[in-house]
């Protein structure tokens, strides 16, 4: 039965169809599927299938990514309220836009997907100084700093990811905290993440959550 639910949910998120996705979830709950199974056996595998589709060249778009994250976060919120016991968080990440950058869409997509993965995403907002990224990561025990940049000069700027890397090095935190970047400029130059000193990048917000999750798992192992 869960296979059918997953298939129907995944089809709904491909179609950016929130109404149908929520109806699938409601019907599953009514038929006795637990809220834990909805999150761990439907929502999270649904995200994985979307990532696979993107990687396999399925032609997705920004609106689909937005809706995938929005639906995942929405369903997760509703299910968490019904969990038998609060789930253990997988890990912590601090996320924000680079110094000088005011674009929030990418960050929102990443955060929606992280929520479903049980990752505590601490939103530092927009135009975040490099020092704050590092200070907050240390204070919150985050194993990943995620820097979003929509413009070339904020992606490459010396006060953005480049400075975060410099601070991690100076404070000898490179072994503990990974730096992940994302945003339009990185899509147009896949080598750019290395130029700015990041450990990894993602082509889109949905895939970024997977990259962050992998680093968190690595830190826990």
């Amino acid at each position: 039965m869960l296979d059918d639910i997953l298939r129907a949910y995944t089809e709904a998120i491909y179609n950016a169809d929130r109404t149908t996705a929520l109806a699938v979830v409601d019907a599953a709950r009514a038929s006795g599927v637990s809220p834990e199974d909805i999150v761990f056996k439907v929502v999270i595998p649904g995200l994985d299938m979307m990532i696979k589709a993107i990687n396999d060249g399925f032609d997705t778009n920004l609106a689909q990514h937005f809706m995938t994250a929005h639906i995942a976060a929405d369903v997760t919120d509703r299910m968490l309220a019904q969990f038998a016991r609060p789930p253990e968080m997988v890990g912590h990440v601090v996320i924000g836009t680079a110094a000088g950058d005011l674009h929030t869409l990418g960050k929102r997509i990443v955060m929606g997907c992280l929520k479903a993965q049980m990752i505590d995403a601490i939103d530092l907002g927009v135009n975040v100084p490099a020092e704050r990224f590092v200070d907050e990561a240390v204070a919150r025990g985050a194993s990943v700093i995620a820097v979003s940049a929509m413009m070339v000069h904020t992606a490459r700027g010396e006060n953005g990811a480049i400075k975060v890397r410099q601070l991690l090095r100076e404070r000898q935190l490179e072994g503990r905290i990974r730096l992940v970047v994302g945003g339009a400029p990185f899509r147009y130059d896949p080598r750019l993440y290395q130029i700015v000193g990041a450990d990894a990048w993602a082509d889109n917000g949905v895939s970024a959550a997977r990259v962050i999750l992998d680093f968190i798992k690595e830190a826990r192992s």
Partner: peptide, 8 residues
């Protein structure tokens, strides 16, 4: 209104 709020 921002890209985020417009797509929303």
């Amino acid at each position: 209104m921002s890209m985020e709020k417009w797509i929303e």
